[in-house]
Amino acid sequence: MASDNLVNITINDESLRRSLRALDLAATDLGPVMRKIAGTLLAETQFNFLDEGRPGWIPSLAAQKRDGQTLQDTGRLMGSIATDHDDRQAAVGTNVIYGAVHQFGGLIGRNKTFKLPARPFLPMTESGELQPDVVVPILDTIVRHLESAARR
């Protein structure tokens, strides 16, 4: 007799299951999100050039003489920035030979007598960590990637 009072409700949870499968794939196949992170690293590097460092660089004598921006005389260094990624990592860098001395500072000149200060254009600190201004954009990239996957 008690079974006469039962109400059966069937919930169609296929869209929820599909979203969960997409989230699982997005969290397992990291290649697409690493490509997006590489793009974010590129954008943040470009912001470093446009903002003349974060924190700000010591202005170069050449930029002061020409009333221009530091590290942007010809645009070659900024234009050389490239990205790479695979399913485990995202990278940004340059193949311009003088990029390292601008990033880390060092001695330059004929007899290595002039000390060039570090002007880190790549979004990393001296200890190799992401710059604080870059952490949130990277996390936002990951969140947007997962949200997009969940909506599929």
Rank of each mutant, 00 (worst) to 15 (best):
N5M: 11
L6T: 10
L6I: 12
L6Q: 11
N8R: 12
I9L: 15
I9S: 04
T10R: 15
I11P: 01
N12V: 10
D13L: 10
E14I: 08
S15P: 03
S15E: 15
S15R: 11
S15K: 11
S15W: 08
S15D: 15
L16C: 03
L16A: 14
R18G: 08
R18A: 15
S19Q: 09
L20E: 11
L20I: 14
R21L: 13
A22V: 05
A22W: 05
A22P: 05
A22T: 07
D24R: 15
D24C: 04
L25K: 15
L25M: 13
L25A: 15
A26T: 06
A27V: 05
A27E: 07
T28L: 05
T28A: 12
T28W: 05
T28E: 10
D29R: 12
D29P: 05
L30S: 07
L30I: 02
L30M: 13
L30C: 05
G31Y: 09
G31Q: 15
G31E: 15
G31V: 06
P32D: 03
P32A: 02
M34K: 07
M34Y: 01
M34Q: 14
R35Q: 15
K36R: 15
I37T: 10
I37Y: 03
A38T: 01
A38M: 00
G39P: 02
G39W: 03
T40E: 12
L41K: 08
L41V: 08
L42R: 14
L42N: 14
E44A: 12
E44T: 03
E44N: 04
E44F: 01
E44S: 10
T45S: 11
T45C: 07
Q46E: 14
F47A: 13
N48G: 07
F49L: 06
F49C: 04
L50V: 12
L50E: 14
L50Q: 14
L50F: 09
L50M: 11
L50R: 14
D51N: 13
E52K: 09
E52G: 09
R54S: 11
R54W: 04
P55G: 06
G56K: 14
W57D: 06
W57R: 08
W57A: 06
I58P: 06
P59L: 00
S60D: 01
S60N: 00
S60M: 00
S60E: 01
L61N: 10
A62Q: 10
A62C: 01
A63R: 02
A63F: 03
Q64V: 10
Q64N: 08
K65D: 11
K65W: 09
R66H: 04
R66C: 01
D67Q: 13
D67M: 09
D67I: 07
G68C: 01
G68Q: 02
Q69I: 04
Q69C: 02
Q69M: 09
T70L: 06
L71A: 07
L71M: 08
L71P: 03
L71T: 04
L71C: 07
L71W: 02
Q72S: 12
Q72F: 05
D73V: 10
D73G: 02
D73H: 09
T74M: 03
T74L: 06
G75P: 00
G75S: 04
G75T: 04
R76E: 12
R76D: 12
R76L: 13
R76P: 00
L77G: 01
L77N: 01
M78T: 02
G79M: 04
G79E: 01
S80M: 03
A82D: 10
A82W: 01
